[in-house]
Design a protein around this nucleic acid. Structure first.
Ligand SMILES: [Mn+2]
Ligand SMILES: [Mn+2]
Ligand SMILES: [Zn+2]
Ligand SMILES: [Zn+2]
Lengths: 153, 153
DNA sequence: ATTTCTATTGCGAACTATTCGCATTTAGTA
DNA sequence: TACTAAATGCGAATAGTTCGCAATAGAAAT
């Protein structure tokens, strides 16, 4: 019988250096599927799983929807992808942006506008302090009607 | 053949007065099911459709889940109920509160804490102005870990 | 109170979103 | 190159939501 070592276990310094050259920073294997999914959501924001899959299949027709779900989940855990929640009963995804931003959604045409507000960060700090919470995420979403949709009502 | 008049059409003043005594303010019929659903979500906040249904069936065993969904949808449109979006891929509901509030969710134990921030209203005004949007709703959600859950990690 | 009309309900089926199990493939390592 | 575990594809399972339609029941008219 053979001793199987978990790849995530501690390694000595020498091996650690070697590992960093071979694995990417996340410790995940580099696969065509993952790369493509990542590329797609880097290119286009706020897609849902099905939209990601459809776009990916243009290039990799055999890619399975399960893989898309699994990959988005994994990348989310690694902090490379964020899940956004609109009104619908399903999720949308985007690559983790450099600066925290929030969403304004038009209920007429569906367009999503991103906006930043340092006040949000302030609120976060304040709530964390007041409630003694360790806050790991925050999401601000506003819904309404854009100028165009407002006119056509 | 008989002329059928839509009940929502204009009525003369006299009839209008009568109607206000008979219909409730929303123009919806008063049914046992609706009353019960309303009572349940008035009593307990942030339930999802299935939880509402289970609680309702203690009193009305034949109540159907479809009715719960339909009713919540209707009451939402009338502005009596609000839909809240947590991390999960399904909705939760609460009676429309007097003052706008937001949510802090513990990822460990699931507890939901409500908090108010007038700053949010300010942001809303500001975004509306900056983007020329008519804003109809806003939701702020923060996630993290409560003191208790933090300790047990 | 009785009649009339249609909003609302219950039920099952349909549909959509997401997860799971497992055999097969493949990336990374030795 | 050979080995091993990670990742994939596929189909089935589960969960959440909507739909169609016949039956029921609230409100208005009589
Ligand atoms: Mn975004
Ligand atoms: Mn609430
Ligand atoms: Zn619009
Ligand atoms: Zn907790």
């Amino acid at each position: 019988m053979r001793i199987v070592r978990n790849r995530n276990e501690e390694m000595n310094t020498k091996k650690k250096v070697k590992a960093l050259q071979t694995y990417n920073e996340t410790g995940l294997r580099k696969t065509k599927q993952r790369a493509l999914i990542m590329e797609i959501i880097r290119r286009e924001r706020h897609l849902d799983a099905d939209e990601v899959c459809r776009r990916a299949r243009a290039e990799q027709p055999r890619l399975s929807l399960s893989t898309v779900y699994r990959t988005l989940q994994t990348l989310k855990e690694k902090g490379l992808v964020e899940e956004v929640h609109f009104d619908e009963a399903h999720h949308h995804y985007e690559t983790k942006p450099a600066s925290e931003h929030h969403h304004l959604v038009c209920l007429g045409c569906g367009q999503v506008i991103e906006f930043c507000y340092s006040l949000v960060h302030f609120i976060k700090e304040d709530v964390a302090e007041a409630r003694d919470f360790e806050i790991t995420g925050s999401e601000v979403r506003m819904t309404g009607y854009c100028p165009t949709c407002r006119r056509s009502k």
